[in-house]
Write a protein that binds this DNA or RNA. Structure first.
Lengths: 151, 151
DNA sequence: CTGTGTGCAAACTCTTTGCATAAGT
DNA sequence: ACTTATGCAAAGAGTTTGCACACAG
């Protein structure tokens, strides 16, 4: 986005996008600060995304409104608590955040570290065994690890 | 296990256990060192286990043959490469190793960090979608996150 | 103004690595 | 002897934290 004042249609669109993001943040009890608005636009501005904190940080640094890594982490966790994001654990080292919070599962490409949504709803959930006595299921994560076919 | 010399039946059992562990290690191309034998006995001496490096290290420190943390990590990875262990990723921070390498899935108790095997073979695998073009599935991990029932 | 949010740097956890010493065959 | 394994301490990656300053309402 341009740092200069925009005119006409563009300005209106940008205003409306920012306005809706602000509303979303307020509903979650989060002050719509410059940083949070910028991050929300990066995260939710285009389709489903799977990002690490570092990746989001790199994107944010290219924006007019720079955001520190500490704020990236704060924001990712606040957005997760607010239900805007879902944490995906596929790799022992880094944590991925998924902008698609609906019930779905993941391909994890081992060579590249990419995460891809498994399309459609997986019926596996219904088939799974009941939790141990006195326990309730909070979530089921299915990770399909894939690699480039060898032949 | 006692540090003193054992007699009769016990000594024979211990010898045989060590002997079979040594054989197992040799077959995997690993020299049966004191440390690897001690760790193998801790890991495989009693039923299915789910351990982190730290947990195994604590157990190993109580043994007559102490093992450094670096060796714990080396050994866990070598055992995994040899097919004696399977890595389980349920938590972003630490890595668990499972002595049950057969095709099964896991409950993860969020409150305590415990891992429990899901009994039986889960049919979810057959239902899962095909990998993206040019990709082949290496493994499917299913983690059923549970917590103490709230009511 | 008042309280929440942000940024920096330091701290922390888990894991890996380099290299000298020890142990297995 | 010859080679591989071990242990230590240092380094590394990712993430969290404490506190002064900045900003939103």
């Amino acid at each position: 986005m341009d740092q200069k004042v925009m005119s006409g249609m563009e300005a209106t669109e940008a205003f409306e996008e920012t306005a809706s993001v602000s509303t979303m943040l307020r509903k979650a009890g989060l002050r719509p600060t410059r940083q949070r608005i910028a991050l929300a636009e990066l995260l939710f501005g285009s389709g489903d995304r799977h990002l690490t904190a570092e990746e989001l940080h790199e994107e944010a640094m290219r924006e007019p409104v720079a955001v520190s890594l500490a704020t990236i982490y704060n924001t990712l966790h606040q957005f997760t608590a607010a239900g805007f994001l879902r944490e995906v654990i596929v790799d022992g080292s880094k944590t991925y955040f998924d902008t698609n919070t609906s019930n779905h599962h993941h391909f994890f490409v081992e060579d590249t570290g990419d995460i891809i949504d498994v399309p459609g709803t997986v019926p596996a959930l219904d088939v799974l065994p009941i939790a141990p006595e006195g326990m309730e299921v909070t979530r089921v994560d299915v990770i399909v690890r894939v690699r480039r076919a060898s032949h």
